[in-house]
Write a protein that binds this DNA or RNA. Structure first.
Lengths: 220, 220
DNA sequence: GTAATACCGTTGTTTTTACAACAGAAAGGC
DNA sequence: GCCTTTCTGTTGTAAAAACAACGGTATTAC
């Protein structure tokens, strides 16, 4: 497989870095890539990892499973976005989440220590890279806070409306597609799938929204 | 009021920076300080801010209030810790949370842009500062994920046990004090206070734990 | 085309929660 | 001291969620 540099150049981590810089950079970061099938795990909760991953194509879910097998999707990572970067800064603690491919996926792995450490003067890009990494962290913080604003709603209905109205605003349209199927949406909002389906029906009957599969329309 | 440099030197942001460096640094970051009374707000949701805060003494709660006034405590910030740093990296979007003093509190404000931008060569500390900032972000990410692991539990009982067992592990003891009163704990776990109190009683009756005020003991 | 599988909506039952209201204990002000 | 306010636990009721079970539909595999 050939690496698609366009995806990398569009990624937040490599923002503002040229293709030639990128090539030497990848060597310096000991970058490797690997393909995964849908439903394959990349990391398991409890693993100690020393690489960050970037999704080149496909997508992965960051998820948390409890003792009883209830699964919560913390985040959906799309091409260009990263996972595992927290452990680049807080070393040697086992991860508390698992990473699962939601479809066939290509991952670029990079050595986390190489990003953090100032290496030889020949690599002048570290400062830019670290600034980009700061931005990535800030975005991830916002994402976590946003998700929390949905899940902390008290009822399933409120959780749904909180999520859907945020999606509507993000898409700048009353009509939009969501990146989850029903079970995944339920996992994301931390509710029971059938109860959520039921609530969606009610919302549709009450004329608050309409939907067909994962295409939703909010009604004034 | 005199700034307590010991608190600053122990803070994650200024880790590894000497007192003399610190003094010139504070001037460069346009640092100012201000005192607040308990229950005073420092920032309101919707504000656009251009300063990060560091708690010098006392403590603040990061919280989110919805349309109906339900309040969720996102985080409790203690002396040496920061708030508002996400907006140092993602500029000019209004904050989605409010910051409330949980007690009488002294805050050190710093200019966020000065942290991010590389200033004149005379300030050689920016690289160290940004590295520290990365660590702060990573820690905050872990904290958000940790909180999420509690709130995504399905029942009040599970939320309580998830939180209390994590606190027990963090204190390395079966017996520990929590930094919340009942209403605050309920806000943190996104549940109803009285229902939570009720559940705590049941847990005590069942011999799973004992408590007195905010001192808890988990029983094997 | 057919079988197998995954996905989705629906329904009824049981369990849990939110809500409201109240009473006792603790804390703070004067 | 006493009064006021805050905090906490308790109870009963109504509302909501979880759970289990099932049938229909779409998708995939062969």
């Amino acid at each position: 497989m050939k690496i698609n540099y366009e995806i990398l150049k569009k990624s937040p981590l490599f923002n503002g870095i040229s293709t030639t810089e990128l090539q030497s950079m990848l060597a310096c970061l000991s970058a490797t890539h690997k393909s995964y099938k849908k439903d394959e795990f990349i990391f398991y909760s409890g693993d100690t990892i020393n690489q960050v991953g970037m999704v080149l194509s496909g997508g992965v879910h960051i998820l948390k499973e409890d003792f009883w097998g209830n699964r919560t999707i913390i985040a959906k990572i799309e091409p260009g976005d990263m996972f595992g970067e927290t452990y680049a800064c807080v070393k040697s603690i086992p991860i508390e989440v698992s990473v699962l491919c939601s479809e066939n996926t290509d991952i670029l792995f990079m050595d986390i220590n190489k990003i953090m450490e100032t290496c030889d003067s020949k690599c002048g890009f570290h400062y830019k890279l670290i600034q980009n990494l700061l931005f990535v962290f800030a975005q991830k913080n916002l994402m976590l806070t946003k998700k929390m604003s949905h899940t902390t709603q008290r009822s399933t209905r409120e959780k749904l409306l909180s999520y859907l109205s945020a999606e509507s605003i993000a898409h700048n349209s009353h009509s939009f597609k969501i990146p989850f199927n029903r079970q995944q949406l339920a996992d994301y909002l931390s509710v029971d799938r059938s109860a959520m389906s039921n609530e969606l029906s009610k919302l549709q009957k009450e004329g608050i929204l309409t939907y067909e599969k994962n295409h939703f329309t909010l009604i004034d």
